[in-house]
C-alpha cells in the first residue's frame, strides 16, 4: 500500500486526503495544504523549525509520516491566533523583539505554547531545558526564553483573576 486515505483535524478544520505513505507530515502540511508556517530546517529532528502540535504535544513534523497523523488533531502556527487576535505568546514575541530572521519562530512559538499548556508556569530553567529542541541561528535564546516566561506568568495571573 503506497497510498492511504487519512482524516484529521488541522487548525479546527477537518480534512480527508489521500497521501503517499512516505510523505512526512511536514511535506503534507506545506506542499499539499499550503500551510507553510512550519519550516523545513535540518529535516532530521535537530532544529525544531518544523514543530507542530499533534494532540497537544510538540513534535518534529519532519520525523513523522502524514499517515501516522490519521485521526489526530493538529495545530500549526497558522491556527494559533483567534481570528485577528493573536495568541498572547505570538503578541509577546513581537512586543519583546524575540524574533530576528523569523525562520525558527513558528517552531519556537508552538513549543512555547505546548510547554505553557502542559506545565502551567515553568521556571526559566525548565523552559530552557524544554525548548532545547528549537535552534536559533541568528541571535540566541535569551529573549525567547524570557518571552515565554513572561507570557506564562501573565497567563497564570489572568486565569487567577477569572
Amino acid at each position: 500500500m503506497y497510498k492511504k486515505e487519512i482524516s484529521l483535524t488541522i487548525n479546527n478544520e477537518s480534512y480527508v486526503r489521500e497521501v503517499a505513505v512516505n510523505r512526512t507530515l511536514l511535506e503534507f502540511l506545506r506542499e499539499d495544504l499550503g500551510l507553510t508556517g512550519a519550516k523545513e530546517g535540518c529535516n532530521e529532528g535537530e532544529c525544531g523549525a518544523c514543530t507542530v502540535l499533534v494532540d497537544g504535544k510538540p513534535v518534529n513534523s519532519c520525523l513523522m509520516l502524514a499517515v501516522e497523523a490519521d485521526g489526530s488533531t493538529i495545530l500549526t502556527i497558522e491556527g494559533l491566533a483567534d481570528g485577528d487576535k493573536l495568541h498572547p505568546l505570538q503578541q509577546a514575541f513581537i512586543d519583546e523583539g524575540a524574533v530576528q530572521c523569523g525562520f525558527c519562530t513558528p517552531g519556537m512559538i508552538m513549543t512555547g505554547k505546548a510547554i505553557i499548556d502542559e506545565y502551567g508556569n515553568p521556571s526559566e530553567q525548565e523552559i530552557r531545558k524544554l525548548m532545547e529542541g528549537n535552534l536559533c541561528r541568528c541571535t540566541g535564546y535569551t529573549r525567547v526564553i524570557k518571552t515565554v516566561k513572561k507570557t506564562a506568568d501573565s497567563m497564570v495571573e489572568n486565569s487567577d483573576k477569572k
Partner: peptide, 12 residues
C-alpha cells in the same frame, strides 16, 4: 530519559 534528544523527540 529526559536527556534524550529534545521534548519533540521525547514525544515520539
Amino acid at each position: 530519559v529526559r536527556t534524550v534528544g529534545s521534548l519533540q523527540v521525547r514525544n515520539r
